[in-house]
Design a protein around this nucleic acid. Structure first.
Lengths: 230, 230
DNA sequence: TGGTGTGAATGCCTTCACAGCG
DNA sequence: CGCTGTGAAGGCATTCACACCA
């Protein structure tokens, strides 16, 4: 299987911390998620095998890119054939960490919060919203989408109870930083933030931000750029 | 103001189409949106001026990066002082194209669609959801969030009526490609897609995709990577 | 023949470092 | 003196091209 052993280029520049054997570029990992999604579609359509050219084509990515990305994590393909779909899917899930189930805390039961709560895609990828938190006393104690709604006071306790490691912030901008601080205090390891603010978080807590207005801005810019070009 | 005139490096590599004077790297533009958002916060907090170090710090970006990004589009700063907030904000809006108002068509009035419809951030940044479309006959003809709900049949007509250039897809995965095709047929120039599929679009139509499950996957990966590291 | 894995080359983005200006 | 604007250097990421394998 042509497994190369250690590379030791005696590099004059790389400091090469003893422990960083596995850190991988951001861009690669985000494409991994795309591959996974597309492979699941391929699987549903019944094909057992796919090659890098086809997979890339479906995503607007070059074949070489697909292969490079995958070989970052191992050898998954068979020369002359391609990649076995049923085998590559779990491999990517393992890399991403979604082979295990993740319990998630959702904070904010407004329009967006409810939408997220009802979103099927989460459970399909191994995420379970284990608890909802809201500041509104009228909502606390009720059920929403089969999940109990708690007061923020109860966060530390509930987080421990369900081994919650991820938090989703779907509250107004003004409240987002306070909520983030409480999530961190409750031991959460990563935050998905939908509020249009840049959170200040301590080292060791991961973040992903989604700003819906920004996505539209980017789209508007692309449209204009596209028009200029022709 | 040290305005350099034309650069003509007689570059041996760059083909340099006569018309591409203004194409800018993706990464830069997406940071521009972040700057804009942050500047609006600064403005609200009353400061009239900010420098690259501070602005970057709030976003986890280096000062040099901030300056380089901005000088891509002009000279906005004053040496020894910084950037004038009230002046930089409209400048960035002009670059992004959000100095003009954009009419948007929202397709899909499920949980997510309703959340988007009620989202204040859109109008604050110059986007107006002018019409909603859904396949469900019971919803058609009603109002939602002050906006009329149309059948998809009416898309071409309504799009023309309101000069709609952008479309937002918030329908189930199975329906997304069909909806995209209809949006394109109706003359839409850009699509913001929330369905977990990779759309096939003709050249000249811009796209931005947001997959909520993928965002969580990325977060999960970061958390694991972070744990490995220590 | 068809397709992977992979060094090497290329191109893009980020960081450095500093001249110059207010 | 503080901070911008900017060439130059450095570091990543993507693409090329081809050896090798089924």
């Amino acid at each position: 299987m042509v497994k190369k052993t250690a590379k030791k280029p005696a590099s004059p520049k790389t400091p090469s911390n003893a422990a960083d054997a596995a850190r991988k570029p951001r861009a690669v990992v985000s494409r991994l998620s795309l591959y996974l999604r597309e492979l699941q579609h391929v699987q549903r359509s019944g094909d057992g095998t796919i090659n890098s050219r086809l997979l890339g084509q479906r995503l607007g990515i070059t074949a070489a890119q697909v292969r490079k990305d995958l070989t970052n994590f191992g050898q998954f393909g068979r020369p002359g054939v391609g990649y076995d779909v049923d085998q590559l899917i779990p491999a990517i899930r393992t890399i991403l960490g979604t082979d295990q189930a993740w319990s998630v805390a959702l904070v904010g039961l407004g329009n967006l919060g409810r939408a997220l709560l009802g979103y099927r895609g989460f459970s399909q990828q191994g995420f379970r919203i284990a608890a909802v938190f809201d500041a509104d006393a009228r909502k606390i104690g009720s059920q929403a989408g089969g999940v109990h709604v708690y007061s923020l006071e109860e966060l530390p306790e509930v987080a421990r109870l369900y081994t919650i490691r991820l938090g989703v912030i779907a509250v107004p901008a003004e409240a987002a930083q306070v909520v983030a601080d409480r999530l961190v205090a409750a031991g959460i390891m990563g935050i998905l933030n939908f509020a249009p603010v840049s959170l200040k978080l301590p080292l060791g807590v991961s973040r992903v931000g989604v700003d819906l207005a920004i996505e539209l801005e980017q789209l508007a810019f692309s449209v204009l750029e596209d028009q200029r070009q022709r």
